[in-house]
Design a protein around this nucleic acid. Sequence first.
DNA 1: CAATAAATGCAACGATGTTGCAAAATGAAT
DNA 2: ATTCATTTTGCAACATCGTTGCATTTATTG
Lengths: 136, 136
Amino acid sequence: MKATHILQHHQLKCTECRIGILNVLLEADAALTENQVKEALHNKFDRTTFYRSFKTLVETGVLHSITLHDSTLYMVNAGENAGHEHYHFYCSACHKLLCIHPQKKENIALPDGFKIKQTDITFEGVCKTCNKTEKR
Amino acid sequence: MKATHILQHHQLKCTECRIGILNVLLEADAALTENQVKEALHNKFDRTTFYRSFKTLVETGVLHSITLHDSTLYMVNAGENAGHEHYHFYCSACHKLLCIHPQKKENIALPDGFKIKQTDITFEGVCKTCNKTEKR
DNA sequence: CAATAAATGCAACGATGTTGCAAAATGAAT
DNA sequence: ATTCATTTTGCAACATCGTTGCATTTATTG
């Protein structure tokens, strides 16, 4: 998936800043903070520009954000990650927030009268990679 | 559950600010932001004091916090709410974050090698009360 | 390439996170 | 109840982040 395609698909102008943000996030193996993206782009853009770019990208649904432990992490909201159910795994060892896609899902019985529009499920623990490392 | 008992149980001094915060949160039917608590106490304390009180209460496990839509909400981490599984329901109609306790719980098959320490499950939708109101 | 609409950079301000330090309050011992 | 050691508080101060207005620059369309 190319950055310019994503932007065009959402009727957004292909500006340098937006393309940069998307490329960094598309290449990352985990969700990143605004500052992490900014640093990856060597602070090439003004912080206001970053702020507005992220805002636009989240509002249009290009990006999905999740706040955990007082920091907001962003990921591209495309393909498998899109939808009204978001599964995340935060590894307390490597501090990465991973998007996961569990095979088996068992729904929770909510109290009567509640209507669900969106579900966010975040696990916290030790990821596969760190688990292996710990055992050695 | 009394505020002073909770504080003593966690070996914290029973200061006016901490007791005030706990009383407000114990009486609330939903999670509240730091500012909502502050206003409920008529800004009786300095913002630094609030900041440090919340910090202490969260660090010692007296309070549990969750960030949603860019605002952090706090609730007392006692009784049913305690533990390593947190179920919340955010109502997009009344904007309240409720703690829920489903009978039947989620049983998700995670990829191999992942070790779970804590699970946070947040539903977003319309709560029982707002659902009723909408239908009339 | 020209025209138009949108995005950018800069300045500025408010809200919030955070720390140091002196004054006040708490809890324990007398 | 009084004293004392320790913790908490309030204030000042500063950093960071969220947010907006405005002039300039850039991206798209014809």
